[in-house]
Amino acid sequence: MSAHAHPELTKNQSLVFGSLSEAGGPLTAYAILDLLREDGFRAPLQVYRALDKLVEYGMVHRLESLNAFVACAHTGCSAHGAAAFAICEQCGDVIEFTPDEALKVLGEWTKAQQFSLSRMTIELRGTCSTCALKAI
């Protein structure tokens, strides 16, 4: 069983996760639907139901600013309830990372404010090093 496998995955959840894993980048729910039409997917609701569970399991993340989803790049996301992404506005590349120091500061703030945090997604938008080099 892989690091991302979850024993309760349905057929639809497995297909959606597989399509995101193979994509190598973020996909919208409608792009996933198009990829899975041959597998019997007919309605966006089928994709959204699967995505909701995969997000809950920590296997998939929703990129709010892109209204898209991406397969988790590392294990343990569901354990710390946070994910961070650097999104290149030029090429669309998405890099997932864990900003430990930022998570610590934000965690301390939530405790001080008595704010009950359910999840956290940090999105950095800018230009990746590859695109920056191309601009020179």
Rank of each mutant, 00 (worst) to 15 (best):
L106V: 01
G92W: 07
M120W: 03
E96T: 00
D100M: 14
E101V: 03
A102P: 01
E108L: 08
P99I: 02
S116C: 03
K111M: 04
S118K: 14
L124I: 12
D93S: 04
T121V: 13
G92A: 08
Q114G: 09
K104T: 14
I122F: 05
M120P: 06
Q113L: 14
D100V: 09
P99C: 05
T121F: 06
Q113F: 02
L103D: 00
T98Q: 08
S118W: 05
R119G: 06
L124D: 02
D93G: 15
M120H: 05
W109H: 10
I95H: 07
D93K: 10
L124P: 01
L106T: 07
K104Q: 04
R119E: 15
L106D: 15
L106W: 11
E96N: 07
E108C: 03
I122D: 04
L103P: 00
I95D: 06
Q114H: 11
V105T: 05
P99V: 03
E96P: 08
D100W: 10
T98S: 07
K104V: 07
T121A: 13
C91N: 01
L124T: 15
R119K: 08
T121I: 12
M120A: 04
Q113N: 08
T110I: 07
G92Q: 06
V94M: 03
P99T: 01
I122L: 15
L103I: 00
L117F: 00
Q113R: 09
G107S: 07
T110K: 03
T110V: 09
M120K: 14
A102G: 04
S118V: 13
G107H: 11
W109G: 04
R119V: 04
Q113D: 10
T110G: 09
F97D: 00
A112W: 06
Q114A: 09
R119S: 15
S118L: 12
T110P: 05
G107I: 07
L106N: 08
S116R: 15
S118R: 08
T98G: 12
E123C: 09
L117E: 14
V94N: 05
